[in-house]
């Protein structure tokens, strides 16, 4: 059975991603580790525990870093609501978080279990610190699937940077250079991917009605917590659409058969730009005068996901 740890800055799309992973009986989720990001650490931990309750599981949740390594903290409560769950009045969880720090938990779990896979849904601060603290242990990770980054022309937080990477670019640089197999699920995967047919991952009005018709506590939870994300999409695009970056990453990690297109590339994280800070710079080859430049691939980039398969995975998770 594949074993996963999920590192999450639990906002509303993380919560849906967690429902998906925790509903999958074919895998084992060893633990959740939480990190600041969409919301502060305390809120992220609360939301992770709430997600466990709605999923009907009791697994350890370890709180981690409440700040980035170097830069000042940025948040995304304008996207996910001030409680990160769409300000829908979701009650406090009964489950309690562990007292052990997420960085220690990551190191311990990876050394205790073989072939652990990591899914990261937030800033990479916990993972980077674990890599620095116990590199030989973290090298044992089988794979990291990371929701983060964007290809040229698709970023959303600045003109060229995606939120999870921008929230801690220095940590991202450590993770991208570390050497464990890394699958990057950039932002555009949740925006209908590279535009090819079948890659429609944005949940439209019909998709939301199908979820409503399922009519369970989980489906109700999903719709309630998504109100902020829906509003955010409407302001930008003027229509009904739910963009779900973190669920896309979980789908990629759990169901590689749903990947429509992926390629390998050299990805560097920009930590020195005045405008390009936090950008994931994707190099496949050198051009013009730099044609002899050789770039060693360090990342597999997913650029399109089977939208139909992705949506039925969400439906299954809330059924």
């Amino acid at each position: 059975m594949r074993k996963f740890i999920i590192d999450t800055d639990t906002g509303s799309d993380d919560a849906i991603a967690l429902l998906m992973a925790l509903a999958d009986k074919e895998i084992e989720v060893l633990a959740l580790t939480t990190v600041f990001g969409n919301v502060c650490l305390k809120q992220a931990t609360r939301n992770a525990l709430i997600s466990c309750e709605f999923a009907g599981v009791n697994i350890p949740v370890y709180p981690g870093m409440d700040r980035p390594l170097v830069r000042e903290r940025i948040e995304a409560i304008h996207v996910h609501g001030s409680d990160g769950l769409g300000d829908a009045g979701i009650l406090d969880p009964k489950l309690k978080a562990q007292s052990k720090h997420a960085v220690s938990a990551l190191i311990d779990l990876i050394s205790e279990h073989d072939d652990v896979e990591l899914i990261t849904l937030g800033p990479l601060t916990n993972v980077a610190l674990a890599m620095r603290k116990a590199p030989e242990v973290l090298k044992c990770l089988k794979k990291i699937t990371c929701m983060g980054g964007a290809q040229l022309g698709y970023a959303a937080e600045t003109e060229v940077a995606e939120f999870n990477i921008l929230a801690d670019p220095e940590a991202a640089k450590i993770v991208f250079e570390f050497g464990v197999p890394l699958v990057m699920v950039p932002l555009e995967v949740c925006l209908n991917g590279d535009g090819r047919e079948g890659a429609e991952t944005i949940l439209n009005e019909n998709d939301l009605m199908s979820i409503q018709a399922i009519d369970t506590l989980k489906s109700d939870f999903l719709l309630k917590i998504s109100s902020s994300l829906l509003k955010f999409h409407e302001i930008y695009y003027g229509d009904v659409g739910l963009e779900l970056p973190d669920p896309c990453a979980v789908a990629v990690a759990l169901r590689p058969d749903l990947i429509l297109h992926a390629y390998t590339a050299n990805v560097s994280v920009d930590i020195s730009g005045s405008l390009s800070y936090g950008q994931t710079v994707v190099n496949t080859k050198g051009g013009t005068v730099l044609e002899d430049q050789i770039y060693v691939a360090n990342v597999t980039i997913v650029s399109a996901l089977d939208g139909r398969g992705f949506k039925s995975m969400i439906e299954e998770a809330v059924r």
Partner: peptide, 14 residues
């Protein structure tokens, strides 16, 4: 360049 990459460096044109 605005979407095309590796015209010169990854994201810059000559």
């Amino acid at each position: 360049q605005y979407r095309m990459t590796n015209g010169c460096t990854a994201n810059a044109e000559f």
